[in-house]
């Protein structure tokens, strides 16, 4: 192959990667930041994710680039969480946590209407990551259940129930209300 030709192909591919993935940098970082909980690991996770995305870009067929990238970001985050050994909260299946103890609201819990930005953030941080990720993807990124299901590699029914429970738990945290979970 003519080296000039290869070079051009290279440039084209790189341009394709950049055009498809760079516009999602903020969203990718936001997801990572919510998933790993601190700026340092979020930054590392996003960097990992972009390198991985670059490595596997040929497997991307141009459909839902944001979702494709989010799935990679999410994996990078969970890998990072494993590395920093906060694994317990992450890997206990959330559905079994669900059966455990009623939620005890913190003293700072407020009525929903008064809940300010800080409270909602703290509330979101309190949720198990399985709830947090679907809420971030849905409420901040406006993704469909189908897109979320692909990202978290779970059936749509799981997305649906995690969102419902995540919202309910968040409301409880925000309003200080303890309600018996209806299953």
């Amino acid at each position: 192959m003519d080296p000039g030709e290869l070079h051009l192909t290279e440039k084209e591919r790189r341009a394709r990667f950049e055009a498809a993935m760079l516009p999602h940098l903020d969203a990718a970082y936001n997801l990572a930041r919510w998933l790993v909980g601190n700026p340092h690991d979020a930054e590392d996770a996003v960097q990992d994710a972009y390198l991985r995305a670059l490595t596997y870009f040929d497997a991307f067929h141009g459909e839902d680039g944001r979702g494709w990238l989010f799935a990679i970001v999410r994996n990078a985050c969970y890998q990072r969480l494993r590395k920093i050994r906060r694994s317990v909260a992450v890997f206990e299946p959330v559905e079994s946590l669900e059966a455990a103890a009623d939620h005890k609201p913190g003293p700072e819990a407020l009525h929903l209407r008064e809940a300010d930005r800080q409270t909602i953030e703290r509330g979101l941080e309190c949720l198990p990551p399985e709830y947090r990720e679907v809420l971030v993807l849905r409420e901040m990124e406006g993704m469909s259940y189908k897109q979320i299901a692909r990202i978290i590699e779970a059936p749509i029914g799981t997305v649906m129930s995690r969102l419902a429970r995540g919202r309910r738990r968040l409301q409880e945290i925000l309003t200080g209300e303890t309600r018996k979970e209806t299953v």
């Binding site: 970082y29 936001n30 700026p39 960097q47 929903l112 209407r113 809940a115 901040m140 968040l170």
Partner: peptide
């Protein structure tokens, strides 16, 4: 209301370094 709050919650922009 909860959804509206969440939608307006902080979005962390990518840091300048990244």
């Amino acid at each position: 209301e909860t959804s509206a709050l969440l939608a307006s919650a902080v979005r962390f922009p990518a840091p300048p370094e990244l």
